[in-house]
């Protein structure tokens, strides 16, 4: 500890400090450009049918509390933090799926298939919310209803197919010996 500089910090600490400061300034720059984009979007509506300010805007502000994480509620623009969160959660759930499938000692084996399905459904939900920005907000409720109808069809389709085909399989006569 004899070579400690007068400011009480060792040289490697200062190196790491400056490195962290530099990388933070990159992040700051990216966030600034995103903020700039949203502000520009507020000023110039790029759709032909921009919403008029007034009572409609007040209504929108009342009903728009339910917006996707990482999606700017005013400008409807995605932000970095939402995608990073989604990536982290999706990677975590994928890793857990592979672990559950491959570790044959930790888990109760008959329940693994159901567990994998639950993990997959959870990850699909993460993707829908954080990547596809599906919400139940006023401008997104049609999309959510379309997805809900799709889920209904898929469940009927998948469960119905498995039910009927397994039934046929059980009822089938054994092959006639030649």
């Amino acid at each position: 500890m004899t070579d400690t500089p007068p400011d009480g910090k060792r040289p490697w600490q200062n190196v790491w400090r400056s490195r962290i400061r530099t990388s933070l300034s990159y992040v700051d720059g990216l966030m600034r450009s995103v903020a700039l984009a949203t502000r520009r979007h507020d000023g110039v509506e790029d759709d032909a049918h921009g919403r008029a300010p007034g009572p409609a805007a007040a209504l929108d502000a009342g009903g728009a509390n339910d917006h996707a994480p990482g999606l700017d509620p005013v400008a409807h623009r995605a932000s970095l933090i939402g995608y990073v969160t989604g990536l982290g959660l999706a990677a975590l759930l994928t890793a857990i799926s592979f672990w559950v499938a491959l570790d044959r000692e930790t888990f109760w084996q008959p329940g693994v298939a159901v567990g994998l399905c639950v993990l997959a459904a959870a990850q699909m939900g993460i993707h829908l919310v954080f990547f596809l920005h599906l919400t139940t907000g006023p401008d997104n409720v049609n999309n959510a209803l379309a997805v809900a109808f799709g889920v209904l069809i898929i469940v009927l389709f998948g469960a119905g197919t498995l039910w009927i085909m397994s039934n046929l399989d059980t009822m089938m006569l054994p092959p006639v010996p030649r």
């Binding site: 759709d47 032909a48 049918h49 921009g50 919403r51 008029a52 007034g54 009572p55 409609a56 209504l59 929108d60 409807h76 006023p138 401008d139 049609n142 999309n143 379309a146 997805v147 109808f149 799709g150 069809i153 898929i154 389709f157």
Partner: peptide, 25 residues
């Protein structure tokens, strides 16, 4: 006033959601 013509971005993404749902089915 709010129920008027939706912005084109909303209409386009709704149509594309319908395609995606059909594709997933």
């Amino acid at each position: 006033d709010e129920g008027g013509i939706a912005p084109k971005r909303i209409v386009v993404s709704y149509g594309f959601w319908l395609f995606l749902v059909s594709d997933i089915i």
